[in-house]
């Protein structure tokens, strides 16, 4: 052949090629590991998302409620409920009821249903104001103590 080869080329090439093969194999393994981790993470995320959607679809009431809460404002609903609970649990209401019933005024006492009706007819702002007044009213606590 009219071609020449550098001295010792065939002696060196085996180790040179093996080093390169090792490097690439290592790189490939790292690459495979990264992609495998990404694939597992993506699969888990997809599974969780699908599971969540399925659960919500199988219970339509929950879905509607959740949707309503999101759209109409969950916080406001919760606040109203809290205020109603606060107002209902106030000793003033029962005391008033009992004292009013006992005294039997001419106009007739407001029973529990009447108070609830009044409370239900109040707007959110009015309820919030009322709750604030009741909380800040020092006599409410005193009355509570007396009754106890």
């Amino acid at each position: 052949m009219p071609y020449s080869v550098p001295d010792g080329f065939f002696d060196r090439i085996t180790e040179k090629a093996l080093d390169e093969a090792r490097l690439r194999e290592k790189g490939r393994r790292k690459h495979v590991l990264i992609w495998r981790s990404i694939a597992i993470a993506a699969s888990l995320t997809a599974l969780i998302a699908i599971g969540y959607l399925l659960i919500n679809l199988l219970t339509p009431g929950k879905t509607e409620q959740a949707a309503q809460n999101i759209t109409s404002g969950l916080q406001e609903e919760v606040k109203n409920e809290e205020f109603r609970e606060v107002i209902n649990s106030m000793p003033v209401k029962n005391d008033y009821d009992s004292t009013i019933t006992e005294s039997k005024t001419d106009n007739g006492a407001m029973d529990e249903e009447g108070i609830n009706d009044v409370l239900n007819s109040l707007t959110n702002e009015e309820l919030m104001e009322l709750a604030a007044i009741l909380k800040s009213d020092m006599f409410v606590e005193e009355t509570d103590n007396i009754l106890q």
């Binding site: 071609y3 020449s4 080329f9 090439i13 090629a17 390169e20 093969a21 690439r24 194999e25 490939r28």
Partner: peptide
């Protein structure tokens, strides 16, 4: 023809075979 190309391809050939 060239040694440099031949060396590269020889390495590539055996690395591919290995992998």
């Amino acid at each position: 023809v060239t040694h440099e190309d031949a060396e590269d391809i020889l390495q590539e050939t055996f690395i591919n075979a290995y992998r």
